[in-house]
């Protein structure tokens, strides 16, 4: 978006001149009301999880859920899918991003735009397509959660690609590779001993984002009839609301904490422009791609 406006102006924490001034009352009212809208559901969930619809505080919602064997088996299944997704993602994206920055920096924007494609195609439609086009594949792929991991790599791409891409960008790949080569190291050795250690935080970001995505994904899993953690949550929600709400709260906290860590770490590293979610990136990128196309 910044490119639309031209050179980004220096951020003036206190607004511009006097025409841009916004009254203090207006500010407090807006931020207060909107802040309330975001806090109340969290507070309500917390209350509901402890009391249900009855009076009195109890932890029964939590303890009941924890003693349900299906809770653990679905969590384990989601974790397995998450692990597979993370490994596949790293295997696919580390060589790709390193290659793009090393040999083909000019197609960096195009690659980033491609990585945002899954945001444009609704996941319900992707699922439908998976059934239509892979329905006849052998059972070992379509009949097992393997297909979920394969598709989650795609669906998490808008988040994972950018994370790794900005981590790689922070390195001077060309110099590192050439230094390694002049010392007689093979490319594989350079990748393993030089680049990967330097990409630690980016790799960690990918692991967190992809794993959190897999734990929370519902649409594809439920439509392909796999009882993953999120699907289980909805199933118990039909009959035991307070249990489902208790775990929604925990699930939310578990996504928010790593997400905010990743947000803070990466915004500090790469400056103001990189802040925000993948959709914002999509917004910025499309403008740049349109610019390119002209």
């Amino acid at each position: 978006m910044a490119s639309v406006i031209g050179a980004p102006a220096p951020s003036t924490g206190g607004g511009g001149g006097n025409v841009l001034k916004v009254g203090k009352v207006f500010r407090s009212v807006v931020l207060g009301v909107v802040g309330l809208f975001f806090l109340v559901p969290i507070v309500s969930s917390a209350r509901f999880s402890f009391t249900g619809t009855t009076r009195g505080i109890s932890f029964s919602a939590y303890s009941k859920l924890l003693s349900d064997p299906q809770f653990w088996s679905t969590l384990f299944l989601s974790a397995k899918i998450g692990l597979g997704t993370v490994l596949l993602t790293l295997l696919l994206l580390i060589p790709t991003t390193v290659w793009v920055h090393w040999k083909a920096p000019k197609i960096r924007r195009v690659m980033e735009a491609l990585s945002l494609l899954p945001l444009v195609i609704p996941s319900v439609v992707i699922t439908l397509g998976v059934i239509t086009s892979f329905g006849s594949l052998p059972n070992i792929i379509m009949g097992t959660p393997v297909i979920l991991a394969l598709e989650y790599v795609i669906l998490a791409l808008p988040y994972t690609y950018r994370t790794l891409d900005s981590a790689v960008q922070a390195l001077d790949i060309k110099t590192l590779v050439e230094a390694g080569q002049s010392l007689g190291a093979s490319l594989r050795k350079i990748l393993w001993w030089v680049l990967l250690p330097n990409l630690r935080s980016g790799v960690l970001g990918v692991v967190v984002l992809a794993f959190a995505f897999c734990l929370g994904e519902f649409a594809v899993a439920s439509l392909l009839s796999f009882t993953t953690f999120a699907v289980y949550l909805v199933q118990i929600g039909q009959t035991q609301a307070s249990e489902a709400i208790a775990f929604s709260l925990i699930a939310l906290l578990f996504t928010w904490i790593p997400l905010s860590v990743v947000t803070v770490v990466f915004s500090r590293r790469s400056g103001r422009r990189k802040k925000g979610g993948a959709l914002l990136a999509a917004a910025q990128l499309t403008s740049e791609v349109v610019d390119l196309a002209e």
Partner: peptide, 24 residues
């Protein structure tokens, strides 16, 4: 705080969001 919070909330969705609104 608002920027970081927005980054997190913008990526919130799905099942947990539905249940927390049922509680609300």
């Amino acid at each position: 705080v608002v920027t970081a919070g927005s980054g997190v909330f913008a990526n919130t969705g799905g099942v947990p969001l539905a249940f927390s609104f049922i509680a609300t």
